[in-house]
Design a protein around this nucleic acid. Structure first.
Lengths: 159, 159
DNA sequence: CCATAACAGTTAGCTAAGCTAAATGTATAT
DNA sequence: ATATACATTTAGCTTAGCTAACTGTTATGG
């Protein structure tokens, strides 16, 4: 049912250029699909970056603003604005660090945490639903590809 | 050098949920990296959606606005605004269709075409550069994964 | 033949995400 | 004590996305 994944036309002579082109075609498509899903999700709608902020704070409680900006790969000012919107919505709590008063300590409110939980479930099950018809071999390929991409990009960060 | 790609910890028991989570983590990262590259590219900077519009018109000359919005997966109003900005920059020409006066006929200007060409080269070689150190096997995995993703999402469109 | 419906785009008004540059306030170091 | 570095915020801008409402054009049905 999914031989396309294992026999993509030019099997054997895959090169970086061709591969790059495909990534460039595909990633924006996937991104928009995820975004649509997030938005249309439930009453409380969440953008992809917002989702990422909440997810980050979910397992790094008390993180600083710069930690958020670094994790998201955006400028501090951008992260500050995003956090601000999330605070206004009551999903994030922003306090000043007790010892370092220039720092900020961010954490999820309970509302934020439960929203996050719902959103995570939705997002995953959205993709998972589509991936359900996918063969284990293709799932493995997908997961591996994600690893490759992350590795490549983290190398970039260092250089 | 790249065994991580073929042995992602939970080799063997990969499932749709886990895979979905990884996609959800990775795709936004890649998207931001591409965006950064596009922006910082040259004098004339291009956003990812702008790139996609120009690329689309590059091989579908005379396309209508709704063709663009459909291809991008956005609302007509959004596409209209995007095209407008590109027209103002002199990269797209917008004329009314000779027979169907409600339609619009879009095409690249020569400036737009050459810009597109430059941008495409940059974008590809940016990714290609990172992919250069990647083993052929991993390239194949990546390409296959992109195929899987596109297939999954096009199924969604039909439903 | 005219009224109405369907279609293609545009406009207006909003939110969010991203940037840069500059400002603020706090800590550190000379 | 002053200068410098650091963490965050503010201000001002562009782009992208949405919805809802509008304009103008073509097609249709009575």
């Amino acid at each position: 049912m999914s031989p396309a994944a294992r026999k993509p036309k030019d099997d054997g002579n895959m090169n970086a250029e061709t591969c790059a082109r495909r990534v460039l075609e595909t990633v924006p498509m996937v991104m928009r699909a995820i975004r649509r899903e997030m938005r249309g999700a439930s009453e409380e709608q969440l953008s992809v970056p917002q989702f990422r902020v909440l997810a980050f704070l979910g397992h790094r409680r008390g993180a600083s603003l710069s930690a958020v900006s670094e994790h998201l790969g955006v400028k501090d000012a951008t992260a500050s604005a995003m956090v601000d919107r999330l605070v206004k919505r009551g999903w994030i709590e922003r306090e000043t660090h007790p010892e370092e008063r220039r720092r900020v300590v961010l954490s999820l409110t309970s509302t934020g945490a439960s929203l996050m939980d719902k959103a995570r479930r939705r997002a995953r099950s959205f993709l998972a639903a589509h991936l359900d018809g996918t063969s284990p071999a293709d799932l493995q390929i997908l997961a591996s590809a994600m690893d490759v991409l992350r590795r490549i990009l983290s190398e970039e960060t260092q250089s």
